[in-house]
Design a protein around this nucleic acid. Sequence first.
DNA 1: TCTTGGCACTCGACTGTAGCGAGTGCCAGT
DNA 2: ACTGGCACTCGCTACAGTCGAGTGCCAAGA
Lengths: 339, 339
Amino acid sequence: MALDDRKLDVLRAIVEDYVATQEPVGSKSLVERHQLGVSPATVRNDMAVLEEEGYIRQPHTSAGRVPTDRGYRLFVDRLSTVKPLSPAERRAIERFLVGAVDLDDVVHRTVRLLAQLTRQVAVVQYPSLARSTVRHLELVPISTTRLMVVMIANTGRVEQRVVDLPAPIDESQVTTLRRLTNEKLCGSKLADTPPLVQALVDESAPELTPATIALSTVLLETLVERHEERVALAGTANLTRGGLLDFQGSLRPILEALEEEVILLKLIGEVEPITRVRIGDETEIDNLRSTSIVSTGYGPGVTIVGGLGVLGPTRMDYPATIATVRAVARYVGEMLAQN
Amino acid sequence: MALDDRKLDVLRAIVEDYVATQEPVGSKSLVERHQLGVSPATVRNDMAVLEEEGYIRQPHTSAGRVPTDRGYRLFVDRLSTVKPLSPAERRAIERFLVGAVDLDDVVHRTVRLLAQLTRQVAVVQYPSLARSTVRHLELVPISTTRLMVVMIANTGRVEQRVVDLPAPIDESQVTTLRRLTNEKLCGSKLADTPPLVQALVDESAPELTPATIALSTVLLETLVERHEERVALAGTANLTRGGLLDFQGSLRPILEALEEEVILLKLIGEVEPITRVRIGDETEIDNLRSTSIVSTGYGPGVTIVGGLGVLGPTRMDYPATIATVRAVARYVGEMLAQN
DNA sequence: TCTTGGCACTCGACTGTAGCGAGTGCCAGT
DNA sequence: ACTGGCACTCGCTACAGTCGAGTGCCAAGA
């Protein structure tokens, strides 16, 4: 059955009221607060249809209606327009992000900003190594048989590993190795490095081959195979707003899920610049059944190097949240472009 | 008034029972579960005294007794013996920490381990820069007027900053600058670097002086003045155990406090190898009135490079927690000593 | 002087009942 | 197709009553 315009208006009104008040909304208060131009009885009929179609439900007989996940989905897809940010919010974003001294700083400031503006839990992925290129590789001897390798990526990320060498090498050999690796790998995307690393081993001077193999093993293993993705988190205290009414009383499963980086990455590690909204079950994480996630990709210019987003109750102000997430992502992109 | 031995026994029994059951403990169940050798009535008299002295209190008339902060304090100081770790726990610690690939990895594994073993919130401070020495400084040109400086510390920490140069410099000048800074600063403690950095500027070749000044400004500002301390956090989900009975119902203030790195550092940033226990108000943080913190320093050998600890309800198993925190700190120290 | 059993008392937790009111579904009328 | 009216549902709150764990006090005994 097709929903006519008025039924959609009713659904929109229900979502807006419920988000604002956090209480099931009844037919009478609905017509009072919105200019629907019809009587409560008519609204009730519409509600009955909406309920039959699964867009709203009653917590119990004789209570008002509450949107279902499906109702929110329809609202987000067809009934809402993105709220423009207030000037105050724009100013807050700018003020917050200027003066960041390094990548860590940018990420931390961003995640705090996002948490503060949306009053929800914010997650920011560090620029993905897989989508970074190598800017410089530095080898620092720790002892004659141990080497620290530091990789600096164009996104500002810096990763280090310790390499155990099969045989001692001296200072000049380290210099040779350093030059060689930099020549081979600088400028290439991390995802493209495996053949280059192989070439590195093939071309190394015989006496350096064992060391080169050890080095390349570490490089491949840590930087390419297990993607070293990282995330920053802030605003968990915001989960307690709405005093346990959201999240059916227990924060536990949500806090547990938030501690799993793998889960967070799956949810906000976007590849596309598109803003995604996952509502309830759409998160596909059991522990997050009662939450929604708004996420988007960010990066300098048009390329995407990482994702960011917020997590909150399914009952959230989607238009405002979407606007804020997008705006913050855009600013962070500009920030990164400057480096 | 001096408390005789039996009154102390009663207090100990109350603390132990309350920690175990989370329910106010009455005189009758006390004598049932502990071999006190006296009747409930006697225990009641002792309880009255303990209450008068402020070691225990009644949530309401006709309820059992609950230890006060002062009671826990006395318990920790004089009535408890550190529980030895179970073999299973020892094994868990070893298994968890072997195979750590870099400092980030060590810290993350440690904080998770600690959270898991104590079933509380764990906090681990990264090795403090102030107590590290410079192992290597790397300068990587980003453009002709921008330089990324990467500092590698002996503790494994790697910090990077971008330096804006007043005038362009070429590759060979970077090499010169790199050699000079490393000669001057390698091996010295960060806290001792200011005069060395100054000497660096004085001795630099005239054409490099402006660049050197820019570089040294960044070095001093970021690495010495504002101590770049970092912490890792895990186990916030454990706050929800005991279903809101601890923390008088609201996790909010606690989650808020946990987001402030400054607060965490104040609480677990130990300088001494001593294990500290802060109970309730002793945390000196309003938001953490209902929590206790057990913290200790760690480091390779005898020197302390950072702190770690756990935060939980004042009603926590102090002997077990103290033992675990100490054991983990010791293992982390050994871990670091290997590098 | 310390310990003990007895006893009256307190007060939170739980249960059952009743009234209220927001909200609904249905139906007949326009 | 919309509307007003009406009976009904059911969660919420208040209130009264009961139960029981736990206490404080006291007088008697070791």
